[in-house]
Design a protein around this nucleic acid. Structure first.
Lengths: 219, 219
DNA sequence: GCATACATCTCGCGT
DNA sequence: ACGCGAGGTGTATGC
């Protein structure tokens, strides 16, 4: 990894055209040839970048990065204020916990959260337009499609609506009801769901995990 | 901006929990107190980060970054291999060209691209569920809602569908037809649009800009 | 401040 | 390779 602090201008031509006027910035050149240009604010997003795989060529003070799609990043280095290179090695990578997949596992293992007597048919129930997160039966034996999101927004309701339309065309399954389950459901999504006859359930991740822990403790 | 190359472990607790085992990484501490942790690959996304506004506290070799939402980033610095600080000043920022807003301007100025005799009613036509990109009249005087995207995907068709549903409830406007306009329209979006009676138009950005340039040259 | 829509989104999974 | 969905999405804009 090479770190350069330099006064530079940058031009990007690709999916759009963009230009950075002359200023002092951080240029990061990584082992995979990727390049990013950072200002002194905002942690996440570089001002400009070229993702790998790409090729970097240096001619005098003009650095050019191109990728296979023909996108081009041209850095004009006017003055170098710092330049250092460091060996980092391969990163072991990060361990995550708490994403939607985990919510789905937890809920599938504890269907009674949705109602007494509810039971799982299967997770990731396949359909022509994609898998339904959870297909289950309610206490009356009726089929229910459950869409799970971390944050429930309007597009999640649209997604579930498409699944329900499709599932209800199958006479073996119909009628299929819908449940929109999320840790947090936006008001607009709740209104749209109500309008479509879809029930909303907010999931308490810690409580679900607590139940799961209790279960594990039994073994 | 402070650049540190260090062997470190990182823990993030917030919207999820994540852990980075000990390894050499780049730590970027920016003027707005934001922190990001980079491995030696991938230009865009840090391994871990804390976006501003946030607060950084250093106690011995443990750096803690917290934000208002209670998210926490804990960096355990085991060995510092490089440490330098640089003054960059405020960045003038980047100038973009080719985004959706510009497509909308160009198309509004050249409605005949959609058909002979078409005319603009207004851009950003307000509705209860958000502004319609362009509302216009076709050659027969019928009202048309146009949704513009850079890349036309399924959610854009859903969005336009919601607008059309709403607009067609207004007897003063109804019937309102729909046009889905984008530089590139994905096949699935095209199929869904067809199913909903929505016309698809691919926009040639360079051609639109060329027409605009010609117009400007007249003055 | 909340809510929506866009992004050179990136990234991973599945077909 | 493309399509699709998720993301600690981040970021800007309008209310």
């Amino acid at each position: 990894m090479r770190l350069v602090i330099a006064r530079c201008t940058v031009d990007y031509v690709g999916r759009l055209s963009a230009h950075l006027p002359s200023a002092n910035r951080l240029l990061i050149l990584k082992a995979d040839n990727s390049v990013s240009i950072h200002a002194d604010d905002r942690a996440y997003k570089p001002l400009n970048w070229m993702s790998p795989p790409c090729r970097l060529t240096v001619e005098e003070d003009v650095w050019t990065v191109v990728n296979k799609g023909g996108e081009k990043l041209i850095i004009n280095v006017e003055e170098v204020l710092h330049d250092s290179t460091h060996e980092l090695g391969v990163d072991p990578g990060l361990v995550k916990d708490g994403v939607e997949a985990h919510l789905q596992e937890l809920l599938a293992d504890r269907m009674e959260v949705l109602g007494a007597g509810w039971s799982l048919i299967r997770r990731e129930y396949p359909t022509a337009i994609g898998p339904v997160d959870i297909l289950c039966r309610d206490a009356d034996g009726g089929t229910v499609a459950v869409e799970i999101k971390r944050r429930g927004e309007i597009d999640g309701v649209e997604q579930l609506t498409r699944y329900l339309e499709l599932l209800n065309r199958d006479p073996l399954l119909s009628p299929v009801k819908g449940v929109f389950a999320a840790q947090e459901i936006k008001p607009q999504a709740r209104v749209l769901a109500g309008d479509r006859g879809i029930a909303c359930v907010t999931l308490d991740y810690d409580a679900l995990r607590g139940i799961e822990d209790d279960k594990l403790r039994l073994f």
